[in-house]
């Protein structure tokens, strides 16, 4: 495992921890899109089907369990927890996330490396992860005041994606036969979605201002 991959996984892990910290300690999910969190839960549930069939490493299995557990518990918190659910802004979080799922299923059925259940599900999870952040970004546009933890959560997610691209470039040059168009293109699309957010995030950081996105 190279340094970019490890740093990518760690920023991904930190992003989840930041979100859980916000929800668990402050008992608030203000500014967090339930739609995006539900899509992530679906992404991990369809991607990590191999958890019981293919053993890669202890690290790999543990991380998979953490991402599965955390994504479902975040959804549970926002939907069911008696205090947290009150801070959920249902009126603002209106992105029709179900409409993202069907195109991803069709695309995964048409464009995949192997037409098997596990492979199609895995490909579906890649396509869905690429667009899963959209409801969150739309909600962010609508929320005038973005709190620090929410801003950091999205920054860490974007950093995780960027580091994965560096990891692929590194692996391409250091490993033989390392060509994965589906992973790379969907990963690149996903990272580009953060470009706008990054621009305003660094802008506010540079000027030491509170993060605000233009309406």
């Amino acid at each position: 495992m190279n340094i970019f991959r490890l740093a990518g996984d760690m920023t991904h892990l930190f992003s989840v921890l930041v979100l859980l910290l916000k929800i668990h300690t402050i008992k608030s999910c203000a500014g967090i899109s339930l739609k995006t969190q539900e899509l992530y839960a679906l992404v991990f549930a369809t991607r990590y089907l191999d958890i019981f069939t293919d053993y890669i490493s202890l690290y790999n299995t543990c991380m998979k369990l953490i991402f599965l557990g955390s994504s479902f518990s975040i959804v549970w918190y926002i939907r069911r927890h008696k205090i947290v659910r009150r801070s959920y802004d249902k009126e603002q979080d209106t992105f029709r996330h179900h409409f993202l799922i069907l195109p991803c299923i069709i695309l995964a059925l048409l464009i995949n490396e192997k037409f098997t259940v596990k492979e199609v599900m895995w490909t579906f999870s890649l396509y869905l992860e690429a667009v899963a952040i959209l409801p969150q970004l739309v909600l962010l546009q609508r929320t005038r005041n973005i709190d620090n933890l929410t801003g950091q959560y999205i920054f860490l997610l974007g950093a995780y994606r960027s580091l994965y691209i560096l990891n692929w470039i590194y692996r391409y040059f250091t490993e033989q036969h390392y060509v994965h168009w589906i992973t790379w293109i969907s990963g690149l699309v996903q990272t580009l979605l953060y470009a706008d957010f990054f621009y305003y995030y660094f802008h506010s950081w540079k000027n030491n201002e509170k993060l605000q996105l233009p309406a």
Binding site: M63, K64, Y164
Partner: peptide, 10 residues
């Protein structure tokens, strides 16, 4: 043989 190396990523 097909390279399965992306499957080791998360």
């Amino acid at each position: 043989t097909k390279d399965e190396s992306t499957k080791d990523e998360l």
